[in-house]
Amino acid sequence: MTQTCGFVAIVGRPNVGKSTLMNRILGQKISITSRRPQTTRHQVMGIKTEDDVQFIYVDTPGIHILAKDRNKAINRFMNHAAVQALHDVDCVVFLIDRTRWSDEDQVVLQRLEHVDAPVILAVNKVDRLNDKASLLPWLAEVGARREFAAVVPISAKHGSNVPELETEIARHLPEGIHHFPEDQVTDRSQRFLASELVREKVMRQLGDELPYQMAVEIEEFREEPRVTHISALILVERQGQKKILIGENGERIKSIGREARLDMERAFGTKVMLNLWVKVKRGWSDDERALKSLGYDLD
């Protein structure tokens, strides 16, 4: 049987649904999600194997304009990680929102000018359209912005038309042996996933109160036969942010820990003992040395 295997980059501006789309395709949570822009900070690989076809998806941070308030080292890292994912892929899925073309969509389109791989335009969140008749002219308008391999309207959240998108992607994958075992779904470690799940809960619970300059470092990840012991340090930049994160009588940090622990137990298939601490580390988000120590390597 001839095997097919290829890399697929999922790109787009922040908060357009890239991680939701990859999780939907894989049928499980690999990339964390929240309503806050720039939730995804790293390239995250998701692997789906169906019979003789292996899709290797690369979820990416949102490509964004480096405005004055978003030109820190961490912003440069995220843009670099997203653009780097476009190198040597077999197909690109460019995700945009329904009936809205932003300046950051234009920036992503410009980044795709020198990409040789076929680019599929996926128009997300079409389930939210009140006027369905407006969709066809909008698809025609955005489809004319460059020569796309296909234009596919989808709902990543509800799965509408996602199988049709996968069919389009499969058309562009080359013949080749599979790079991963058929039961592997990501190249990321459980330690990485644990840190991301804690960060997701912080962003979901405190997205409006806490700036995104917050990071999570796993200090202990110890597996025993029936339980995994995890200690995580949450870094913020100011004392006031620490106070918000801990909450009155420690209630907020307890809630974050409870939700993260439940997700970890589902993901790892074992009981988890999770301990969380909060530490102020001023200026870490604009300090390349600090970023490297936290796994954000600009190189």
Rank of each mutant, 00 (worst) to 15 (best):
P61Y: 04
D88L: 02
W101G: 01
W284R: 07
V119L: 10
H42W: 07
M203L: 15
Q213D: 13
L129W: 01
T4Y: 09
P153Y: 07
G283C: 02
L274A: 06
K68G: 07
H229D: 09
R41C: 10
D287C: 03
V272C: 01
W277F: 15
E141I: 00
V11H: 02
V123Y: 06
I256K: 08
I154V: 12
Q106G: 01
R171C: 08
L139N: 00
E196L: 14
F221H: 08
K18Q: 03
E265S: 06
W284D: 13
I120T: 07
L135W: 08
E223L: 11
R76Y: 10
A194L: 09
S155Q: 02
K68A: 15
K125C: 08
Q110C: 12
A260L: 03
M264S: 10
G143H: 07
Q84C: 08
I32K: 06
Q239L: 02
F180M: 09
G46N: 00
E209F: 13
L66S: 11
E147P: 02
D287H: 04
K125G: 06
L245V: 14
W138P: 02
H114L: 09
S102V: 08
I169Y: 02
L206M: 09
R238A: 12
I30T: 07
I74N: 03
H178A: 12
F268Q: 03
D187Q: 12
K242P: 05
I56C: 15
P137K: 03
F55G: 05
C91H: 12
T49M: 15
F77Y: 13
N71R: 15
F148K: 10
L173A: 03
E168G: 08
I96M: 14
C5F: 14
F180K: 06
L298Q: 10
H64G: 08
E223I: 07
R24N: 13
S255V: 06
T270H: 01
T186G: 02
A122L: 01
M45G: 03
E164P: 06
E219F: 09
R266T: 07
V8P: 04
L66I: 04
Q110G: 15
V152C: 05
T2G: 07
I246E: 00
V93M: 04
V83K: 02
H158K: 12
H80Q: 14
I253M: 07
G247F: 08
G62P: 07
I177L: 15
G27V: 10
R24V: 05
I154F: 01
I253C: 01
R171P: 02
N130D: 14
A194Y: 08
L21T: 02
S231M: 11
A82I: 11
V162E: 00
V107Y: 09
G62S: 12
K29P: 00
E219A: 12
T20G: 04
D183G: 00
P14Y: 06
L193T: 00
W138H: 14
S134K: 09
T270F: 00
G6P: 11
G247E: 10
L26V: 03
D97Q: 04
K68F: 11
V119W: 05
S19D: 06
Q43Y: 09
D97A: 05
H158Y: 15
Y57V: 02
A232Q: 05
N249C: 09
P211A: 14
A150R: 08
H64R: 15
A144I: 03
S255P: 01
L26A: 05
V280R: 11
D90G: 10
R266W: 00
S102G: 09
N161S: 12
R98C: 08
E147A: 14
D131W: 07
